[in-house]
Design a protein around this nucleic acid. Sequence first.
DNA 1: TGTAATCCCTACTAAGTTGATAGGATTAAT
DNA 2: ATTAATCCTATCAACTTAGTAGGGATTACA
Lengths: 137, 137
Amino acid sequence: MLSKKTKYGLKALTYIARSTGESPVQVSEIAKSERIPQKFLESILLTLRKAGVLGSKKGKHGGYYLRKEPTEILMTEVMRVLEGPIAMVPCVSLNYYEKCDDCPDEHKCSVHKLMIEVRDSTLKVFRNTTLADLSGV
Amino acid sequence: MLSKKTKYGLKALTYIARSTGESPVQVSEIAKSERIPQKFLESILLTLRKAGVLGSKKGKHGGYYLRKEPTEILMTEVMRVLEGPIAMVPCVSLNYYEKCDDCPDEHKCSVHKLMIEVRDSTLKVFRNTTLADLSGV
DNA sequence: TGTAATCCCTACTAAGTTGATAGGATTAAT
DNA sequence: ATTAATCCTATCAACTTAGTAGGGATTACA
């Protein structure tokens, strides 16, 4: 299951990408428009900022803005930040590899092979999709 | 993340598919060989039996056996039984569709479109893979 | 017919995750 | 100063996961 965190994060990014103005977009505005609990959204955007996807401006008239063009923001990056590893098992994760405790030899593991295929096909989608595709910009 | 339940279930199915004998395969044997907690595995195989993937024989010399040929057992079926919906959000699930509370119009939802793509690419893998592929039979 | 082996079923539980909420600290514009 | 924003930490209820425990029901076979 996709977490609410990721779902909200994607919606917020889409909203920011679509907002044309020069000034940064405020959390309250996004929260209201996208029906997301504001405090929860705050923490999500903070995560995205720390990961370098968003920039922020503090104080009055502050808010969040994209650090890159929507066409440059890949879903691989966003999904990894919000949802964590793309692979369904650590033993096939490219970025967060971990050995399974119960597998003596992962090359003989039937689950391993299947999960590599799933990972690759999902990666293909995420590598081929940018924020621009999501937001129609 | 893939649950242990699914992982263990897949390993167990693979084990059963590989075991050539006429008599059914016992839980204890699978548990020992695949390093799976026996009681946990019992409940998993029970689920697979109730879903019609496995058959069972009770009493002494009892055990589990496949109800179909490995080539006939698709990953779509097994994954749905063990892991639940293949879609990452209910609003794009083919078998367990549910509307999102926060989406006024899901056709305009950016997350929706992305998740349909992920669902389709994952489905493609699962529809193309049978237990025979996993077990090399 | 007794007994051991095996699946079947229900209930419980510790640990972790999720989806928030609360309260304030910090920063910047006016 | 005041106001409006982000930033940060802590807390929490509900749920899920990965088991464990204990026994019931069924069957093979001596």
